[in-house]
Amino acid sequence: MKPIISVQDLSKTFKVYRNHKGYLGAFRNLVDRKFDLVHAVDGVSFEVQPGELVGYIGPNGAGKSTTIKMLTGLLVPTSGTMEVDGYLPWKQRKDCVRKIGAVFGQRTTLWWDLPLTDSFDLLKHIYDIPEDVFIANYNHFREILDLDPFLNTPVRSLSLGQRMRADLCAAFLHNPSLVFLDEPTIGLDVVAKQRIRDFIQFINQKKGATILLTTHDISDVQKLCERVLIIDHGKILFDGKLAALLADFGGRRFLNVEFAEYYPEVHLKDAEVVRVDGNQVVFSFERKTISASKLINRLSENYRISDLEVQNQPIEDTIRQIYEDQLLYNHPYDKRDPAP
C-alpha cells in the first residue's frame, strides 16, 4: 500500500540573525548581517501507512513542530523530498489541505468571536462537505464529545477542555484521511484527557484516519500509539514500537518497603537505597540485573517486613533519561546516519 506520508532526507535550515546591540547596533544591523545556521530538521526520513496512529515525540526544540509545519504546507523545506497523500504540501496547498486536518493544542482552529455552530457551518462550506456527510459526522461527534452544552457559545468564552473538544470535532468533519494532532491534551485534567484519547482512538479505528500525534504527555503515546518516532536535534533517533524502547531503557524498578521495626542500616545486594523515611525505605534496582521476587526473598531473610510494593519507572522518566543522557545515541536503535 502506498504510504500516506513519505519523507526522504527532509531538512530545514534557518538563518538566525545575530542582533547587534544598542542604537549604533541598529544601524549596523542594516549593513553587516551576521547569522547562524540552525538545522531544525536535519535529514529526516520515515513513512507512515494509511490508518496508523503514530506518536512523534522529542524534547523541546527537537524539530517536531518544524517537521509538522513542512508536512502541512506551512513551511517550505530546504532540501529533501516529501509526499503527503500524494501531494507536495507547500506547492499544492489547497489540494493537500483539503484532504488533511490539523489540531493545535496551543491555539484554536475556529473563529474566535463566532458561536461554535457558525464555525462548523463555515467549515462545511469551506471543505464542500456534502450535507449528509456533514450531518452524520456532526451529530456523531457532537454526541461523543458532548458539545451540546456550549454549541452556541463563542470560542473565546470556552474553557480549554471545551475548546479542544470543539477543535477535534472541527478537524474531522470533512473526513480527512490524515490528521496532525499537536499537543491535543495539553493543560487538560485527567478526565478530559481520557475523553480526548478515546475520541482519537475511535476516529482512528472506526474512520480509519491516519493520525500523527505530537505530544509531551507520554501517557498519551503509551495509551494510543504502537509506533513512536523520537526526534532530537533535528534527527530521528528512534522509529519503532514503544514497547521495545521501554524494554531496553525502562528497566529501572523500585521496591517500596515498610519494615516492621526501625533498622538503622539496611543493605540489599543488587539494589540501591533511594530514600529513607523512618521505617519506610525505597530501593531501586535494574530489571536486567535481578528479579523482584529474588530481591524480596533476599530482603525477608534478614529483615522483618510489614508491607511492600514494586513499582516500575514512570515512562516519563525513561523518556526524559533518553533525552537528557542521549541514551539512544550510538545505540543499535539509533536511526541517524553514522558520522563521516
Binding site: K69, T72, G73, L74, R93, K94, D95, V97, R98, A102, F104, Q106, R107, T109, I126, Y127
Partner: peptide, 13 residues
C-alpha cells in the same frame, strides 16, 4: 504573532 495566520494556510481557501 499568535500563529493564527497559519490557520489560514491550513484551509483550502
Amino acid at each position: 504573532r499568535k500563529g493564527q495566520f497559519d490557520q489560514l494556510l491550513l484551509r483550502p481557501v
